[in-house]
Amino acid sequence: MKDVLTIGQLAKQANISPSAIRFYESIGIIPNPKRVNGQRRYTMETLDQLQFIQTAQSAGFNNKEIIMLLEGFDDEIIPSKRWNEMATAKCRELEEKKTKIDTMMNILSNGLQCTCSTWSECLSKVDSSGICN
């Protein structure tokens, strides 16, 4: 039984709060665990799922999308097509975010070299590459 974790142990290993684990159970992102004397008991698989959830959330997936990734596909669509459609849409969305992040990184990097005292002054000096001269 060493591969069985209490909610406190799971929360500590996953670096999240026990209330977050209970919330994930309530919305179906992770399955309800077995109980021993009324206390939740989790497997290491649940820890893996929580780590996947955290990675997906940090990449911009919402809870509904994560549930779909983990289990919620329509039975009439084969899994490879389901994953392909979702992955294609999410890749497009992440590329758009990446472009915005890259643009902001350039603005900040250029701003570190700018000696202007206002945005208006800086914008009037920006060349075609977006660099303030």
Score class of each variant (00 low, 15 high):
residue 4 V to K: 07
residue 118 T to Q: 14
residue 97 K to T: 09
residue 48 D to L: 11
residue 11 A to C: 12
residue 2 K to N: 07
residue 124 S to A: 10
residue 90 K to C: 01
residue 99 T to L: 15
residue 128 S to N: 09
residue 65 E to N: 04
residue 89 A to L: 05
residue 66 I to M: 03
residue 81 K to Q: 08
residue 8 G to S: 05
residue 92 R to N: 15
residue 51 Q to G: 03
residue 30 I to E: 01
residue 82 R to F: 04
residue 96 E to H: 06
residue 86 M to L: 06
residue 74 D to Y: 02
residue 101 I to P: 14
residue 4 V to S: 03
residue 7 I to Q: 00
residue 43 T to Q: 15
residue 24 Y to P: 01
residue 132 C to Q: 15
residue 114 C to N: 06
residue 66 I to E: 00
residue 35 R to Y: 10
residue 59 A to Y: 08
residue 131 I to T: 08
residue 116 C to E: 10
residue 78 I to T: 14
residue 57 Q to H: 05
residue 82 R to D: 02
residue 125 K to P: 07
residue 48 D to Y: 02
residue 27 I to L: 08
residue 117 S to P: 12
residue 34 K to N: 07
residue 49 Q to L: 05
residue 52 F to H: 02
residue 8 G to K: 00
residue 48 D to M: 04
residue 115 T to S: 11
residue 65 E to M: 04
residue 88 T to Y: 11
residue 82 R to K: 08
residue 10 L to I: 01
residue 59 A to L: 12
residue 59 A to T: 01
residue 119 W to V: 12
residue 79 P to G: 10
residue 25 E to A: 06
residue 75 D to L: 03
residue 50 L to P: 07
residue 119 W to N: 14
residue 96 E to M: 08
residue 54 Q to Y: 02
residue 8 G to H: 06
residue 101 I to Y: 15
residue 1 M to S: 14
residue 91 C to N: 15
residue 121 E to G: 09
residue 115 T to K: 13
residue 98 K to W: 13
residue 46 T to Q: 02
residue 6 T to H: 04
residue 103 T to Y: 06
residue 6 T to C: 00
residue 43 T to G: 15
residue 90 K to F: 00
residue 9 Q to P: 06
residue 72 G to K: 11
residue 82 R to G: 02
residue 31 P to C: 14
residue 53 I to R: 01
residue 16 I to Q: 00
residue 113 Q to K: 13
residue 80 S to Y: 12
residue 60 G to Y: 05
residue 40 R to C: 08
residue 57 Q to F: 06
residue 112 L to A: 09
residue 91 C to T: 14
residue 80 S to A: 10
residue 105 M to D: 13
residue 3 D to Y: 06
residue 38 G to L: 03
residue 88 T to V: 10
residue 122 C to F: 10
residue 57 Q to L: 13
residue 123 L to W: 07
residue 62 N to W: 06
residue 24 Y to M: 11
residue 47 L to F: 05
residue 95 E to T: 05
residue 94 L to Q: 14
residue 77 I to R: 15
residue 18 P to Q: 03
residue 96 E to K: 12
residue 114 C to Y: 01
residue 16 I to V: 03
residue 101 I to N: 15
residue 11 A to T: 02
residue 86 M to P: 01
residue 86 M to K: 06
residue 131 I to S: 08
residue 63 N to Y: 10
residue 78 I to D: 12
residue 67 I to C: 07
residue 10 L to W: 01
residue 55 T to L: 03
residue 39 Q to K: 11
residue 26 S to L: 11
residue 132 C to G: 08
residue 17 S to D: 13
residue 19 S to Q: 15
residue 79 P to E: 13
residue 10 L to V: 08
residue 89 A to C: 05
residue 89 A to W: 05
residue 70 L to K: 10
residue 57 Q to K: 08
residue 2 K to V: 09
residue 125 K to W: 04
residue 107 I to E: 02
residue 71 E to N: 12
residue 50 L to M: 03
residue 28 G to Q: 06
residue 99 T to M: 13
residue 112 L to Y: 10
residue 114 C to W: 08
residue 127 D to K: 09
residue 132 C to F: 10
residue 129 S to P: 03
residue 18 P to E: 06
residue 48 D to W: 00
